[in-house]
């Protein structure tokens, strides 16, 4: 499923003294099966943008097309749209409300009007996706779980609607490294195994470098850069200006080049750099026992 934004602008509190243009003439296409990272510092408009993708906000100007159809046109079923484009908000664990994990995850599918049997199967599948054992946790209260587990239950609540596009607003905010790695692995699996299109808001350039195939940099309500990560990470000044910085591996490459070391232009993840440096060491014959 593809999503296209055509000249989208959004103005908060239009006409009042507090009027603020959060999005300004955004044009953007996201293809089926992409893993897109959306970056930019607080207030750049990225949270406003993601709320346009499933019709929670309607553009002041412009159009949002999902599979070529304007989602804000008359007679479009928003509920159905929201099943197809799943949105996970920041700190989603704060939206849990049911007595049991199972009931909470079933909330979305139940709103879709699915039969009980199908709901039950979807809950199982969703829990499976987020690495939560159904037998162990389905009947527990979500409020008895740890923070990281609660977040996974909340994500399962969106996954149970089986969306083909999953939008996540800073899914790892506030988690410790273990919790973060787990969430990122879950997202990776959904992308690779279920071919779910991922749009992830992230502040961590190192995570973006490692995971996303494309990144979009936002600044003051506009798109400042969009393209494959290896291209965008070349634009250091722009990233700096957007308050983002570059991954540690890119910094090291830059320093090494300054020292006269020949390195290819498009190295940007730690793994790539590791492999390349290792190759250079081997060529120099400096490795013992090789």
């Amino acid at each position: 499923m593809s999503i296209e934004l055509k000249h989208v602008s959004y103005v908060y509190s239009a006409g009042s003294a507090f009027e603020r243009r959060a999005l300004n003439d955004i044009c953007l296409t996201i293809e089926d099966g992409e893993y897109v990272a959306l970056c930019g510092h607080t207030g750049c408009g990225k949270s406003t943008l993601v709320q346009h993708l499933n019709g929670l906000l309607q553009p002041t100007e412009g159009q949002v097309l999902v599979d070529g159809k304007d989602i804000n046109a008359e007679g479009v079923d928003r509920k159905r749209l929201r099943q197809k484009v799943g949105l996970v908000f920041q700190y989603p664990e704060y939206q849990l409300f049911e007595e049991t994990v199972e009931k909470d995850i079933a909330f979305g599918p139940r709103n879709m009007g699915l039969p009980e049997k199908e709901i039950h199967e979807r809950v199982r599948r969703a829990m499976d996706h987020v690495h939560m054992s159904y037998e162990k946790y389905a009947q527990s209260s979500p409020f008895d779980l740890s923070g990281g587990q609660m977040r996974r239950v909340a994500i399962a609540g969106v996954l149970a609607m089986e969306p083909s596009v999953l939008v996540l607003d800073e899914p790892t905010a506030g988690l410790d490294p273990r919790g973060r790695d787990r969430i990122l692995r879950i997202i990776q699996e959904l992308h690779e195994e279920k071919n779910v299109t991922i749009i992830m808001v992230s502040h961590s350039m190192d995570d973006v470098a490692r995971l996303a195939s494309r990144m979009i940099v936002m600044m003051d309500g506009t798109i400042a850069a969009s393209g494959p990560c290896r291209e965008v990470f070349q634009k250091r000044d722009l990233l700096e200006q957007a308050g983002l910085g570059v991954p540690a591996a890119v910094k090291l490459c830059l320093k090494l080049r300054e020292q006269g070391l020949q390195l290819p232009e498009d190295l940007y993840t730690a793994e790539e750099l590791h492999d390349h440096l290792l190759k250079l060491f081997k060529e120099k014959g400096g490795l013992k026992g090789c």
Binding site: R82, L87, Y94, F107, G108, N111
Partner: peptide, 16 residues
């Protein structure tokens, strides 16, 4: 602010 956010989050799960 929180009410607004939770409302949107539940709407995203098909709440009406």
């Amino acid at each position: 602010e929180e009410t607004d956010k939770i409302m949107k989050a539940q709407k995203a799960r098909g709440a009406d």
